[in-house]
């Protein structure tokens, strides 16, 4: 990750070994807990917003296994599989009244967790979550990031592609290795079915907590229409669109994004 735009936030960290997977977990601040579920592009691991939230909350940031700190065990093949590791983590950390914040695949993961057990969760903010199939078999709900050239993929993810903080050609060899490993992890979990779990939709009704769905108005990876339909599947959800942003509104317009999230988490 290019460190020019996002200085790495400092906090305590530890490895937590669990039966399904090991987690590298960072913790910032104290107060009511927030579980921060990063996206497949892990920009959220270095957002200044974490520091701001840490003034009021205990922000717990588990790095998804396979994203540079701990390995993704071979036995895990899906976000569904992985959600059980997170349920173990919630139990291990004895978390209660938890605010879940999930970005993209992290939002999908939040829904996988909450649809199995909501009892430790008080509310969820989902930022452009993926994970369900909305349209028919011939509809491409989520654009194919593997099929398109890099520049096109950037324009799918960002309203203004220049906002992409990731500049792979500026990475050191070790940073490039982490990026490669992370992309392999994403592919392993999301290649097929493509960024969704066909059965998740059947159990979203079990999510009984207040949920906020935030979408970038110019999200070309998964359009606003998809986001709205997704939000409707969540029983207690509100849909918020942020203008002038794509799939990562928190990266493109923190000035618009941060207040919306802050207000919801209160």
């Amino acid at each position: 990750m290019s460190s020019k735009k996002f200085p790495t936030v400092r906090g305590s960290s530890r490895i937590i070994n669990l039966p399904i997977a090991d987690f590298f977990v960072q913790q910032f601040g104290s107060g009511s807990p927030i579980l921060w579920l990063h996206s497949e592009d892990y920009y959220e691991l270095s957002l200044p917003l974490i520091q701001n939230l840490a003034q009021k909350y205990k922000v717990i940031v588990p790095w998804m296994p396979g994203y540079g700190k701990t390995d993704l065990p071979n036995k895990i093949r899906t976000i569904d599989d992985l959600s059980y590791a997170y349920l173990d983590l919630l139990e291990k950390l004895k978390l209660q009244k938890l605010r879940l914040v999930g970005f993209s695949v992290g939002g999908w993961l939040a829904n996988e967790i909450a649809s199995k057990d909501c009892s430790r969760i008080s509310k969820m903010s989902l930022v452009c979550p993926l994970g369900v199939k909305i349209g028919g078999p011939y509809d491409r709900d989520i654009e194919d990031i593997y099929y398109h050239p890099t520049a096109k993929v950037q324009s799918l993810k960002f309203s203004n592609p220049k906002q992409d903080p990731m500049v792979p050609t500026e990475l050191s060899e070790s940073e490039a290795f982490v990026l490669a490993r992370s992309k392999e992890t994403t592919a392993k979990l999301c290649w097929d079915p493509y960024f969704h779990n066909p059965t998740l939709k059947n159990r979203l009704h079990r999510i009984t907590v207040k949920t906020q769905v935030i979408w970038g108005s110019r999200n070309r990876l998964a359009k606003v229409k998809y986001g709205k339909a997704y939000a409707k599947l969540l029983p207690k959800s509100d849909f918020v669109s942020i203008s002038g942003t794509g799939h990562f509104p928190h990266v493109e317009r923190p000035d618009r994004f941060d207040p919306i999230l802050n207000k919801f988490l209160r």
């Binding site: 050609t169 990475l171 490669a180």
Partner: peptide, 11 residues
């Protein structure tokens, strides 16, 4: 993975 990393970073 190392070969893929080189591909991503343009090496």
């Amino acid at each position: 993975t190392p070969l893929y990393a080189n591909f991503l970073s343009g090496r």
